[in-house]
Design a protein around this nucleic acid. Structure first.
Lengths: 204, 204, 204, 204
DNA sequence: GATGAATGAGCCTTCATTCAT
DNA sequence: GATGAATGAAGGCTCATTCAT
């Protein structure tokens, strides 16, 4: 008999990342994914129920991997909140460092899945946002973060900002080197844009 | 009552905002747009070359309107940089305050147009990013902003963060009231998350 | 504007009768139906939801027409039962006299629809079988038909026999002229095959 | 337990009868047949050239078995014609008594094979119809059957009627018990529906 | 022989766009 | 200009068949 080659699913998934990333979910043709995977069209359907489920699989996998890092952060009770925030940001950026296509997919096609609000990845996404909130709230309680920051909004700020820069990096890696991006995000989110006048927080 | 034919283009555009916003660019059907506009399918093509050009038109219009505010900011040589940044953020949020559908469109479908990199809106978008850079650079020169902030990256941070929160607001206005969002964005971007230890900037 | 030509639905339906009749439901391609109807492929879907619904429409129409005749028979309280049976048989045969393709469809593809047991036609079919039963039962009560005949089975006998001969006629009209078929069916079902032992043959 | 490989062909054939009968020829999937046969998909093709040939095989086998009984009838020169007709009807019904799936196959999918008019089974089918004709003609000659019956049409009447009732029985065995069906068919075809005017009904 | 993963031709259906009225 | 019926290219998916193991 013909053994499942084992890497075929991976080749399809990888091709899907490239094609979805390049052409967008709707611009991506199954036949093209199969072609780039070096596989017959029908073979795609041996491993995935349909086009939508490929995207779901990719996002579930992606968020599952992000989740591993986040879970680690969540468990370290003694880690200081600032480090936790840094680890979360790093966790996201590290995930894409080697794979710009994946970044494009992540940045552009999540909408596709959010629209119906189902799918395995949804849980991880919600978990992530909650984790962010918890970390910020914890930091506030410990007197490290400003008490007037809204944890949920802050988390979304970081996520949105990171997303945008990931996008820019994936489109023009030279102009947006990931290391610089990483440093800037942290610097701005921690210290803000203003030069503090004195020791009092200049907040409204 | 038979409305004046003169407003047909507007009715189509408005319907398109709703339908694109609700169903996404690819999920949107021309016939549905026509229907919501109270117009025959074919009439859409009297005012727009094709589906893509409707989206281009909407984004061009949107960015043109944003641009008006930005241009004002750019011209005020004497305005302090911090206020300029605030005006830019406000400019974006104000644009969508009355129109969640437009926010969804703005947030979800820009990708569609970025993909091919052409279109009138592109110029406005690039202009906007350059304006942001200039304002930040100006602030640094004037000693108001931290000198180690990368102006281009900072601009993208703000844009990405705003985008994300606009999305959340449009999806759940109660949980993300625009006023709170507006205040938080400014607070965080200006002052950061950390409570300054003393007067020295705590940057790496 | 372009007015619905009006006969397009009919042309598609007629083409469908031919193609379904000739190639069978599964062998029939929508594109071929459209072609024979002198219509674009997509136009088929202006008039019918999908392939299956074309078949359903045709059977519903067919049985509705048969039903008209049957309903007449059912209402005539004073008609003698034998004439009623004759009218029913005639009703079926008349329906197909002008249209062998329709006969092939009727004879071969009803299975397709019986399988799921739904559809408008189903009701007419059941009605028809019940009408047959009622007529036979009535005939028995009136002492015209043999009392030991099972009305339901008899009805099915007639239907099955008629179906088979319709099939043969549609395949080879010369070998199975409809008039002969009609006469034979009645003769056999009324008088049977045997020569009555003691009486003269009561045949027409 | 691993069954002897020798019965694989039979297991496939039996599974095919069930699956074809249940799902129809086109609804039947080779993989499903293999599964029900407890055999790998590819193995089906070790025993049968293709899907169509499975059906052909089944019908050939079926008709070959029917033919055995018919051949016996044909050879008995001294058997009275009426008995011959009865034996033919019994032959058909007996064949399916134990196997409703086979009945469904027989009743629904013969069309599939008639369409192209080839196949081994075709000869047996034609033979059967000719036998019927011969028997009826013989009966007429012997003065037992009505001289005005068309032998070919009569044969088709019997075949069609039997087919229909086999179908009903296979769908609802309780409502159409095979014994009742058998009796009714004979009674009606021999004696007809009408009560002979001057004689007593010559029914069993 | 046996297996079941792999193949790819083929078809139903959608929908942006056109065009006769 | 306005209409909406008509068009037909294109693509997701199925499944009979093949073939490497």
């Amino acid at each position: 008999m013909r053994r499942k080659s084992g890497d075929k699913e991976k080749r399809i998934a990888d091709a899907a990342i490239r094609v979805f990333g390049r052409d967008g979910y709707h611009g991506a043709k199954i036949t093209r994914i199969a072609e780039e995977a070096g596989v017959a069209t029908g073979s795609v359907y041996l491993y995935f129920r349909n086009k939508q489920s490929i995207l779901q699989y990719l996002f579930a996998k992606l968020w599952k991997e992000l989740h591993v890092g986040f879970a680690y952060v969540a468990q370290q009770a003694d880690l200081d909140p600032r480090t936790k925030v840094e680890l979360i940001i790093d966790g996201i950026l590290d995930q894409f460092e080697k794979n710009p296509s994946l970044a494009l997919l992540f940045v552009n096609e999540q909408t596709q899945l959010l629209r119906d609000g189902t799918g395995e990845f949804m849980q991880y996404y919600v978990d992530f946002l909650q984790l962010g909130e918890r970390v910020v709230r914890d930091g506030i309680r410990k007197g490290v973060f400003r008490p007037d920051v809204d944890p949920r909004i802050f988390t979304n700020l970081v996520f949105g900002a990171t997303r945008q820069l990931l996008h820019q990096w994936a489109r023009a890696p030279r102009q947006f080197p990931l290391d610089t991006v990483r440093r800037e995000i942290k610097a701005v989110f921690f210290g803000g844009l203003l030069i503090p006048l004195s020791s009092t927080a200049p907040r409204a």
